[in-house]
Write a protein that binds this DNA or RNA. Structure first.
Lengths: 134, 134
DNA sequence: TATAAAGCTTCCCATGATGGTAAGGTCAAG
DNA sequence: CTTGACCTTACCATCATGGGAAGCTTTATA
């Protein structure tokens, strides 16, 4: 299977497949005599694993660890769980941060006429740097 | 006021102040004869504005528009509000996306023993690519 | 005053994950 | 045997930020 078939089969672009190989996330793959990459079932499984982990928001670095655990028959599930919980913590922290921004803006927007007049609590807040919204 | 005083006064690093100038977000600032940047009160206000807008998650591009509106006495607050609502939409969409990831992982982690055994629904899900969590 | 320390300037590199493009080799179909 | 589709590597761009080097200026100190 060539790289574009592997890309179609896994949802990982050919560009990213080469990148993952370059940075060592996945090992070097087999090549034809002329240098074309050749993907076997195992390689496709691995690429699907990476794709799914990316969809769950894991960083490349975390995915490297997940792959190592996945391929280690003697892993302790505690290690996997710890990695997942760490990532959940990052996600929840980011959500909290974004939600604070959104709530602040929602308060400001609720108090903005949104008509032809120039008065605008949104700009006043950003200019003033205060956090009060009502 | 030199660049590092301006940085301290606004919470924008000297590095970023130069960058904002370079990309045209803020206009070129006054210079001493020897080429050192000199910041007046107005410049400091503008930098604080940028800083606050960044804290609210606006992109550089959006901040450029906010600055233009801020400095336009004849602006319509509707334009500012539209910009804010657009950004709120982006924030809420991102939050929804991250929350879906977090909830999926929380389900998987809840079903993972997290002990010395290798069995792990987290890895099984990522490897299997299915979305079922229970 | 001479010298050292601190601060300024520009320029280049790196991040993380992804996309784009260009130049050149390869393969399959007509 | 040509054409077109596909592969390879190598470089550039994104977005916002930080790091560092080389060289000039200003300030502080002996």
């Amino acid at each position: 299977m060539n790289i574009s078939s592997a890309a179609t089969a896994t949802g990982v672009s050919a560009k990213m497949i080469r990148y993952y190989e370059e940075i060592g996330l996945i090992g070097p793959v087999a090549r034809t005599e002329s240098g074309y990459r050749v993907y076997a079932e195992n390689d496709v499984h691995l690429l699907r694993f990476v794709r799914r982990a990316r969809d769950l928001g894991f960083s490349i670095d975390q995915i490297g660890k997940l792959i190592a655990l996945w391929q280690d028959r003697d892993r302790a599930s505690a290690e996997v769980k710890a990695l997942a919980l760490e990532h959940i913590g990052e996600l929840r922290a980011k959500i909290t941060e974004l939600d604070a921004m959104a709530r602040t803006l929602e308060h400001l927007a609720a108090n903005c006429h949104g008509d032809g007049r120039p008065d605008c609590p949104i700009l006043e807040d950003i200019a003033g740097g205060s956090s009060k919204t009502g």
